[in-house]
Design a binder for these strands. Structure first.
Lengths: 213, 213
DNA sequence: ACCTGAACACCGTTCAAGT
DNA sequence: ACCTGAACACCGTTCAAGT
């Protein structure tokens, strides 16, 4: 553990300067600021100050503010993936699991509106969306595709191209989430994010029609 | 038409200082900057400079940057309303008109992504959303509701609460628009914004089922 | 009534210098 | 290797002063 000589593979020398893990601390503090005050109020100076660190210390760990933001967004996609996966698996998959997944999706956005906006709101310039970011976003989308494929195999829903179906479903979840956190939907809808009606109509549109022979 | 004596008590003295209508010019220039470089690159200084006017001249016409942005957003809702109304009316209403309306909606977002983001992306703080802004947003939504009611009366679609239906449809349009302008959907989808599949599934979910007696 | 110009309190980012 | 502190070129907003 006392190794301080390492060419590349070394990422964390385990012997820090100020913090145990300043990079992690910066990310946490940034997220905290974003959640509390919104992305537009996130300043590197305050983040540094709050950690008792110079405002330029951040540049040891991130290329710039965009890079910090991209990492925050990336971690958002990971959390979103986990919460939707859990909802799907812990609610018996199938139709009930799928509904739980949709609710979990929208609820994530409602619970972390600013974080969700960082992921989708155009704050991260495309130049900053590195491979890790894109991979994480893709993985979150794949959860949806997988859930659809499984329901297709169970004969519950239509056998359309699952990726095309997933985009359709995603648009509905995403649109609902965005409208809710933008305050465009009334209070009542905020309490029941992905409402019964929405899911009923969604499922009606993708379920396997019983063939009339 | 040659009236320079205007209806409402002294708004524009018709005798300007620098520009014929600096307020209008500021809005146009702001929108131009937003469309070209994005909201996050909009600075009052550059807007002023570009119009050959001091950077503080703006404060004669708007309370602050938020107020300018709110007006830009408000005008976006008006344009959106006009384009969707036109699509609906010029395509024979009914199912075809409704599809045209959906396409027009998403196409508006694709053609003016930054403008659309100003309207929905949380750039305008809720304090800045005055009555005019909210009224314009509401009016844009009403177009959708009206189109649904008309289709209900024609017996084409379900007789659910039209406002609830409209929210459902809106979420789908909005989600599609947002995902497209965020680059989350592949190129092909960008060229055909509200794809055939999406509309097919949407209409299947809201159309009036033929009753089997 | 409308606009200017200087001033203020903020930004993100860079870079020589410290340990 | 990691961080500091001063410097730079930017912001939005205010306000006395000009016409």
């Amino acid at each position: 553990m006392a190794r301080s000589t390492h060419p590349r593979p070394g990422k964390k020398p385990a012997k820090p300067y100020h913090h145990g893990d300043l990079r992690r601390a910066l990310l946490d503090e940034a997220l905290r600021t974003i959640q509390t005050y919104g992305v537009e109020h996130l300043t590197l100076r305050t983040v540094g100050e709050r950690l008792g660190v110079s405002r330029s210390a951040l540049y040891r760990h991130f290329a710039d503010k965009q890079s910090l933001l991209a990492t925050v967004g990336k971690e958002g996609f990971r959390k979103l993936r986990q919460t939707t996966t859990d909802a799907w698996e812990q609610n018996g998959r199938g139709r009930a699991g799928f509904q739980a997944m949709g609710k979990a999706y929208v609820q994530f956005a409602v619970a972390h509106p600013s974080h969700y906006r960082v992921m989708f709101g155009g704050f991260i310039e495309s130049a900053a969306k590195d491979d890790h970011f894109l991979a994480e976003a893709k993985a979150a989308f794949k959860v949806l595709v997988d859930a659809l494929v499984e329901q297709q195999n169970a004969g519950d829903i239509r056998r359309d191209d699952p990726v095309v179906m997933a985009r359709f479903v995603w648009a509905l979840f995403h649109g609902t989430a965005m409208l809710v956190i933008d305050g465009q939907l009334p209070e009542e809808v905020q309490r029941d994010p992905l409402g019964h009606y929405t899911f009923e109509r969604l499922y009606a549109s993708i379920r396997q029609e019983t063939l009339r022979t």
